[in-house]
Design a protein around this nucleic acid. Sequence first.
DNA 1: ATAGGTGCAAACAGTTTGCATGTAT
DNA 2: ATACATGCAAACTGTTTGCACCTAT
Lengths: 131, 131
Amino acid sequence: MMRRTKQGEAISRVLENCRAPLSAVEILARAKVLAPEMGVATVYRHLNRWLQEGKLTPVEFAGETCRYETTGRAHHHHFLCRECGEVFELPGCVAGLHSIVPAGFVPRQHEITIYGACPHCANQPENTHAD
Amino acid sequence: MMRRTKQGEAISRVLENCRAPLSAVEILARAKVLAPEMGVATVYRHLNRWLQEGKLTPVEFAGETCRYETTGRAHHHHFLCRECGEVFELPGCVAGLHSIVPAGFVPRQHEITIYGACPHCANQPENTHAD
DNA sequence: ATAGGTGCAAACAGTTTGCATGTAT
DNA sequence: ATACATGCAAACTGTTTGCACCTAT
């Protein structure tokens, strides 16, 4: 039975109102606005509860810390801009995805991640070489 | 200028002869057969060198530690068996992958990861409920 | 001889956990 | 009143780094 606390409320607010997946410390930072005393442990405890209730999905990008997004959204994948680090949702999916799965394998879940430049960064050629 | 050492040799041997991506500790374990004194730090130092020379690619699966595979193989993706944890290469790619990338975005790289059951585990229904 | 590689242990980042306290019920 | 949530700090895992030592060149 989930008890209603200021911290829990703050975390729910953050998770439900973000437009891109967030990391634990990003969630902490935002939740602290509503519940300034909060520590990381509380964030992780809530994240894990949401995860095991299936209300949250971990989103991982190569070499980056784990981010989380709420489930129940339309099926989608992600685009990570290598220049600004921003994450974008790519709605929909690819048609013949399972064509690459050999006979005998039983696919149950998949992830497609695309890396590159977002429209904003793609138009700023100077940024391209900003390490 | 890369100096030729027993440890470096051992690591090369391991990286070049494995058929699936390996984690740092797996690499250490295998390399220790040839160079028993070796520590993790050396493994990471070599991995990082290979990475920045572009001879190695990190392979990450949701919730798992980073694995590495040599570059230069034919384009492929990965299948992670949720039952036995084994990783399989899926040769080839999907046709209309970029159809999910909206106009303005510049895709430069992508990853497709499929999770499920490998042929062996798929035929052992008892395993399905392990855990 | 010397630059560079190595092992060890300490330092780090991200995440989890134990415990005493605080609080919603 | 009591069970559960919290904060803090310690523990843990995966990775990096500093330093004294060793070794291929």
